[in-house]
């Protein structure tokens, strides 16, 4: 991706934030969307006098128009950095950094603050970025992510997955109760039922799960080959002879995992955004156009 493209995003409903921004806010102020009439006495701003409304007012008060002020929001980015995210060409984390750069530009245009919370097998304090505004924040985050030292894998088979889940919980706890927009970047190679309760803590926010999969893991290798596979995280091994039948099964399994994710997030009124190998800002814009209301 030579030139970072920005994308459009919206959050449904209005935001309570007092800081002026680009999203529909719930506080009065200077804005374009009409909220209500108020007495001149209450809102002493003669510039906004509404003569027509004042004439028709029963009580004969001078009425002033009040507007809703667009508010800015905070965008939180939760990034799964576990070993499986380092898989593929150019790598899923690379897709994540492309996204961060694009988000940086977009958020700056909206005047929103972005924060980054990364976790692998533990919550990565060193990569934590509190909400900030600025043109270069996205690039800064992308660089931080690119230069991040991979965590030393936790030994043991299921323990690494467990610790990833608990690290995810820690990360969610940091932003529990906030509102705004939350991007959750992961390949979701987790036991999905265990994250269900954690996701409850994000119910105030607009959750956008971004499922990053690599093309090579989604599309099985050609038939008539022998695959010695090893789970990058748990180091479990599985050998299989790829036949046409096995390929179909593989594709079916991918499809069912996709459906599971859709079902999981449908309960939280959000829909996962699937990325395969390359981040496309235009597709993400379209996603927001279609879903945010």
């Amino acid at each position: 991706m030579n030139e970072t493209e920005e994308f459009v995003y919206r959050v449904p409903g209005s935001t309570a934030g007092s800081r002026p921004g680009a999203h529909r806010g719930s506080s009065r102020g200077s804005g374009m969307s009409f909220a209500a009439h108020a007495r001149l006495f209450d809102q002493p701003d003669p510039r906004r006098l509404d003569l027509r409304a004042s004439i028709t007012d029963v009580r004969g008060e001078w009425l002033v128009r009040t507007y809703l002020q667009p508010a800015s929001i905070t965008v939180h980015v939760l990034i799964d950095m576990s070993t499986s995210m380092r898989f593929g060409q150019p790598g899923k984390l690379n897709v994540a950094t492309q996204f961060l750069q694009s988000l940086g530009i977009s958020a700056h245009a909206y005047g929103d603050a972005i924060s980054m919370l990364a976790f692998d097998e533990q919550f990565r304090e060193d990569l934590y970025m509190p909400p900030r505004r600025g043109r270069a924040i996205g690039s800064l985050m992308a660089d931080t992510l690119n230069n991040a030292i991979p965590a030393t894998p936790v030994q043991g088979k299921s323990s690494s997955q467990k610790s990833t889940i608990s690290a995810f919980q820690t990360a969610v706890n940091q932003i529990e109760g906030t509102n705004g927009l939350v991007f959750l970047l992961s390949d979701f190679h987790w036991p999905l039922n265990t994250v269900d309760s954690t996701l409850d803590k994000l119910s105030n926010t607009t959750l956008v799960p971004i499922v990053i999969w690599d093309k090579t893991e989604v599309v099985p290798p050609a038939a008539g080959q022998l695959l010695f596979a090893r789970d990058l995280e748990s180091q479990q091994r599985r050998q299989l002879w790829i036949s046409e039948h096995k390929r179909e099964q593989w594709l079916e399994n991918v499809q069912s995992q996709r459906q599971n994710l859709i079902d999981l997030f449908a309960k939280r009124n959000s829909k996962p955004f699937f990325i395969e190998s390359e981040f496309n800002a235009e597709r993400l814009s379209r996603y927001f156009m279609e879903h945010a209301s």
Binding site: S84, M85, F87, G88, K92, D187, H189, D214, E217, L226, L227, F228, A229, R230, D231, L232, E233, S234, Q236, R237, R238, Q239, L240, W241, K246, Q249, W250, N253, V254, S256, Q257
Partner: peptide, 21 residues
């Protein structure tokens, strides 16, 4: 000896491959 794969979840089980290995 083996290829790292993010998740074995959607790999179909196979006995022939194990035997060959």
């Amino acid at each position: 000896d083996s290829i790292g794969i993010p998740s074995l979840v959607w790999l179909p089980a196979d006995t022939l491959g194990q035997t060959l290995r």
